[in-house]
Write a protein that binds this DNA or RNA. Structure first.
Length: 275
DNA sequence: AAAGGGGTCAACCGCCATAGG
DNA sequence: ACCTATGGCGGTTGACCCCTT
């Protein structure tokens, strides 16, 4: 069966949007919202397909879009997140308020990728500006981590053409000192310092890492002692998921997906239990 | 000043996941 | 359980801009 095209092409306009079209779309969404993108253009009187309207709104017309060049800080953030997440642009965008996945994708392909290639600079890890894992301020207790052993993944990630090199890497968590925890890939080796720091902002409601309905007390939920200053998320994923009282975990976006993927690759449950 | 080549970025395309019937 | 509609995502394209020659 041939899938129907996303929109009826006949009579629909393509190409750059005019200011008039923009105004029509903005006005309509301000008045009515955008509950149904497919129906929207007809209702609004636009000769565009719903997909085109959605893209125009999401990537350009939304009032919270931040225009202009990316700051150095934003670029560093993209590099770090790309290191973690691979080409998951929407996940990266969720960590950069006001920036869209399309914009980030463009910036990556036009600037950042080349810069990294030219300079052969190792992506600056989040840890560069943060405390070391075994700093005094970190009082993480990681139940079960030390005796855990995360197996190598048995199959490549099917849903992403370019998964994070970290998640593609065969993974092993060695026993002993947490500083020895490492993830090995074919041609790289990640020390624990490659993992992102989980701090207060990481878990904040604004961060995009909000656990649906369960953001209040990570310590209580995960069973690890979450020091607000510096904690890492390996432990809850690798060991405590059975006790993880959060049915929304699989919907958690961005970095949490990374940890969740890691957990699944470690042989964890395919689906989280309902609580 | 004109041509051409490369860079940029908005927009499109096609696929996938999921909700709902 | 299956099918369809829809939204969302990442990859790609092509028009436009700018710089160099």
């Amino acid at each position: 069966m041939v899938r129907a095209p996303c929109c009826e092409k006949m009579g629909l306009k393509k190409g750059p949007w005019t200011p008039e079209e923009d105004q029509v779309l903005i006005s309509f969404i301000q008045r009515n919202g955008h509950g149904n993108w497919r129906a929207l253009p007809k209702q609004a009187g636009l000769l565009r397909c719903g997909k085109s309207c959605r893209l125009r709104w999401i990537n350009y017309l939304r009032p919270d879009i931040k225009r202009g060049d990316f700051s150095r800080e934003e670029e560093e953030t993209i590099i770090k997140l790309h290191e973690m997440l691979g080409n998951r642009w929407s996940a990266i965008a969720a960590r950069l308020p006001g920036r869209t996945d399309n914009e980030i994708k463009n910036v990556w392909h036009t600037h950042l990728k080349k810069r990294l290639q030219q300079n052969q600079v190792m992506p600056a890890t989040t840890m560069a500006n943060n405390k070391s894992f075994n700093s005094d301020s970190s009082e993480a207790t990681v139940p079960g981590l030390l005796e855990s052993s995360i197996r190598a993944p048995t199959s490549p990630e099917p849903s992403s053409s370019e998964m994070s090199s970290v998640t593609e890497a065969s993974t092993s968590i060695q026993t002993g000192d947490v500083n020895n925890v490492e993830i090995k890939g074919e041609d790289m080796e990640y020390s624990m310092e490659s993992f992102p720091l989980i701090d207060e902002s990481f878990w904040s409601d604004d961060s995009g890492f909000l656990l649906d309905g369960y953001s209040s007390n990570l310590s209580e939920l995960s069973g690890i002692n979450v020091d607000a200053q510096a904690q890492y998320a390996v432990a809850p994923m690798a060991n405590n998921v059975q006790e993880w009282p959060c049915d929304g975990l699989s919907r958690v976006d961005n970095g949490m997906d990374f940890w969740y993927d890691l957990f699944i690759r470690a042989g964890g449950a395919e689906e989280l239990p309902d609580f």
